[in-house]
């Protein structure tokens, strides 16, 4: 049996503003190591909400979340930050780089925060990641000097820097044109196939979803197809 990286057990989530509405209803599923999973569903069905919970950024929910076999229930804010830093790479729909830093530095920051490698090693590793994504030539530019597609690739490189257990993406191609979107997809495919990287990607693109190992389909806060 393959190793479970992430497990959701009976996750429920409600918003109370302005009235209480339940958004996620009894979510149960697992992601195994090396799996490439996509999440699809209509707009407003709760995909993003689920992803924020799975990435430990949102702790206001019922049920249990296990990452690498450990429950996040009783972890403090600082410990959860550490989990995110070490085990989760997150790619947003908007590229969200730090404009005060160079591309290289942006990729390095989570690695420096983890403190597992020396600064030189982190830099070396960051260069490697940028090379995988084909943007090593932009390494010394400032983050705001890149195109949208390039920025998204930098964000993926940053997500990879600590060799995370799992990469999560919330419509990482949603803000890109078709060509750039294709490039980013191909990168995810490559990461999954060549590096056996575990991926959990929310998308609207059915064509893309069909090329992944598994599709989780959501509707009205429930998982309708695993």
């Amino acid at each position: 049996m393959s190793q479970i990286v992430l497990q959701a057990k009976g996750i429920n989530k409600s918003f109370h503003d302005p009235i209480t509405i339940q958004i996620l209803k009894d979510i149960n599923f697992t992601v195994n190591k090396g799996e490439f999973v996509s999440v699809i569903g209509k707009s407003g069905c709760g995909k993003s909400t689920l992803l924020y919970i799975l990435s430990t950024m949102d702790t206001d929910f019922q049920g249990e979340l296990l990452i690498d076999g450990e429950s996040t229930r009783n972890k403090k804010e600082g410990q959860l930050a550490l989990v995110r830093n070490e085990k989760i790479g997150f790619v947003f729909q908007f590229h969200y780089l730090l404009n005060e830093f160079s591309v290289l530095r942006n990729v390095m920051l989570p690695g420096l925060k983890l403190g597992k490698y020396s600064e030189e090693e982190v830099e070396h590793r960051a260069m490697q990641k940028l090379k995988i994504l084909g943007i090593e030539n932009e390494a010394h530019k400032m983050a705001n000097q890149l195109s949208g597609g390039q920025k998204q690739r930098v964000a993926i490189a940053r997500a990879l820097i600590n060799d995370p257990l799992i990469i999560m993406g919330d419509e990482p191609t949603g803000n890109l044109d078709k060509k750039n979107g294709k490039i980013v997809f191909d990168i995810f495919q490559e990461l999954a196939q060549e590096f056996k990287q575990t991926l959990l990607i929310v998308t609207h693109d059915n064509e893309f979803a069909n090329s992944t190992d598994r599709i989780i389909e959501m509707e009205d806060g429930r998982i309708v197809k695993l």
């Binding site: 990435s55 950024m57 804010e77 600082g78 930050a81 550490l82 995110r84 830093n85 070490e86 997150f90 947003f92 969200y96 780089l97 730090l98 404009n99 005060e100 920051l109 989570p110 925060k113 983890l114 940053r158």
Partner: peptide
Amino acid sequence: MDSIAILKATGFSGKD
């Protein structure tokens, strides 16, 4: 705000 959100999402704690 955005930068702070990113720092937090990538593993910096509130204390940091």
